[in-house]
Nucleic acid binder design. Structure first.
Length: 322
DNA sequence: AAGCCGTGGCA
DNA sequence: TTGCCAAGGCT
């Protein structure tokens, strides 16, 4: 959970998570829908799927025995060099450095590195450097200490150099270049995106279609089908031709950011009338070019099925209209 | 190896 | 309001 996610957000989620799934066997056997609910609001949903994969790997291939080394943990799905180093050093006293964003910053300043610390080669060099510094005693505590130093003293903005225990050794402090060490992480320019979220509403049973999205934003998550705004007119034409349907484009837009995408969205409510024709769901889906499986869910329980913040926004607009 | 992926919190 | 970004991993 803590991968690329603020700890303050993680902690309460983690408590709830382990309360429901206290063992690796529970996690391995966990139903995807339950997993989605427990992960709801945390983002980067591939992490939740990998966590489940990793648990299955341990239960099925390792007979429930946890790996006991950095190298073996690296083979677990969702477990990269950072996570493997955390587990190996804290749980098994292995002398391997944890290189997260904090550690990159601390070392960048300590050594006065003002360029290329975020690339894979840059982080690899930092890994090698800190690996050499790990003491024999309590490697895990050492790793956590550097990370904590980065989080509290050697922080990104307004570092507390006057309180820093390694101020005397810090080249950035000595050369008065703490401001440019480390350089900012390179980031993609923000891209504006317009899209439509489709809310299929079967009035007769008061049910709503929830799709398993297979491509684009929020791929491999469950929620409302999404289409680029550029395809909206085409979809509307198809909808026009299907006489048992009527659609309504809600006037209010919603906005949402996904990584470097600034999304402006509108909700297209597609209502199935009281007396539907024989057109089947699969035909409807095929004609709309939505290659996604879906379930019809009672409107009253849709909210409990949704797991992304994006879908929550969409459903709120729909509920407001309804 | 660079590009990709969600969200909440904070300045 | 807007931008920045976090105890990264996968492809």
């Amino acid at each position: 959970m803590s991968q690329q996610t603020t700890l303050a957000v993680v902690v309460p989620k983690f408590s709830e998570f382990v309360k429901h799934l206290p063992t690796v066997y529970d996690l391995a056997a966990c139903d995807q829908e339950i997993l989605r609910q427990l992960w709801s609001g945390l983002g980067y949903y591939a992490r939740a799927r990998n966590l489940n994969k990793g648990a299955k790997f341990i239960v099925e291939k390792l007979e429930g025995h946890f790996p006991q080394s950095y190298y073996e943990w690296l083979k677990i799905p969702g477990c990269g060099s950072y996570t493997a180093s955390v587990i190996a050093s804290i749980c098994f006293n292995e002398k391997v450095a944890c290189v997260d964003g904090n550690v990159v910053r601390v070392v960048s300043r300590l050594l006065g590195l003002s360029e290329d610390v975020w690339s894979s080669s840059g982080k690899s060099a930092i890994q090698t450097y800190v690996d050499q510094m790990i003491p024999e005693e309590r490697p895990g505590d050492f790793n956590q200490a550097i990370m904590e130093l980065g989080a509290t003293v050697c922080r990104k903005s307004k570092p507390l150099c006057l309180l820093c225990p390694i101020q005397k050794e810090c080249l950035a402090f000595a050369h008065n270049c703490v401001e440019i060490c480390p350089p900012k992480k390179p980031r993609r320019d923000t891209v504006d995106v317009e899209l439509f979220a489709l809310v299929f509403w079967r009035k007769a049973t008061d049910t709503v279609a929830i799709a398993h999205r297979t491509k684009g934003f929020l791929s491999n998550t469950v929620g409302f089908p999404l289409i680029p705004a550029t395809e909206a007119s085409e979809v509307k034409q198809v909808l026009q031709s299907l006489l048992h349907l009527q659609f309504l484009e809600l006037s209010s837009k919603f906005s949402h950011n996904i990584t470097h995408h600034r999304i402006s969205g509108k909700v297209l409510v597609v209502q199935e009338l009281e007396n539907p024709s024989i057109t089947t769901e699969s035909v409807l889906w095929r004609e709309l070019g939505l290659s996604q499986s879906f379930d019809w869910v009672p409107r009253s329980v849709v909210a409990s099925k949704l797991s992304t913040s994006f879908d929550n926004k969409v459903f709120k607009l729909f509920a407001n209209y309804k």
